[in-house]
């Protein structure tokens, strides 16, 4: 295994941990309507296959404990891990704990005898947490999706455009709080955009 010092999160350059460590009372305008964080590293696995085939569903369920969601723009697995996010009728993003390196191998193994696609994408996307009273408004500033509580709620997920980056939006709870999956190369841009869009609500960074 590589030495730990070699590892870098997509937003490591921004020094977010140091910002998160500042006590809230030391930040000017402590009222923070928008809370941002870089989620810790997770295993992300690209999964493609035919959800209509029982063998495919069963194989995935055997590894994850649930079948890949067949309903468009929904996530399976609740608020915990692993999760499977519907991206398209034959495409999901499976998210597991970073320590759980076995899943990609297990999925490949379970699906070895059928036509499916399993690929490790753990480094391909940064995951940014967006929460707080202003979170929904911030999302609306860059995204044409209807994120009103009647139209999009906990457990919903979709690929869409946020500002000038393609993202996967996954609403975790009613609060609301969201996980935003963005391609690694866009991560610094998106973070800067989110901070700018959140300015009028006050932005706080958490670990």
């Amino acid at each position: 295994m590589a030495d730990a010092y070699l590892r870098q999160s997509p937003l490591a350059h921004l020094g977010l941990a140091a910002r998160a460590a500042i006590p809230p009372e030391d930040i000017e305008g402590t009222e923070a309507g928008v809370v941002l964080c870089e989620r810790p590293a997770r295993h992300q696995i690209g999964l493609r296959g035919d959800a209509r085939r029982p063998a495919f569903r069963a194989a995935v369920k055997g590894v994850l404990g649930f079948a890949p969601p067949a309903k468009a723009t929904t996530a399976a697995g609740g608020t915990g891990l692993p999760r499977a996010l519907w991206l398209g009728p034959d495409e999901w993003l499976v998210v597991t704990d970073d320590d759980d390196a076995a899943t990609v191998a297990d999925l490949s193994e379970a699906l070895a005898r059928q036509h499916a696609h399993v690929v490790d994408l753990s480094d391909a996307r940064a995951v940014i947490g967006l929460a707080g009273a202003g979170a929904r408004d911030v999302l609306m500033k860059g995204c044409t999706l209807d994120v009103h509580r009647r139209a999009f709620g906990p457990g919903r997920c979709t690929r869409t455009l946020l500002a000038r980056a393609q993202v996967i939006v996954h609403q975790i709870t009613q609060a609301p709080d969201y996980d935003l999956y963005v391609q690694r190369s866009f991560a610094e841009y998106l973070w800067a955009w989110l901070e700018d869009a959140g300015t009028e609500y006050g932005v706080r960074v958490t670990a």
């Binding site: 991206l87 398209g88 009728p89 495409e91 690929r159 869409t160 393609q166």
Partner: peptide, 8 residues
């Protein structure tokens, strides 16, 4: 094509 969506 729903390029920034389901890709279909």
């Amino acid at each position: 094509v729903h390029v920034h969506g389901c890709g279909r």
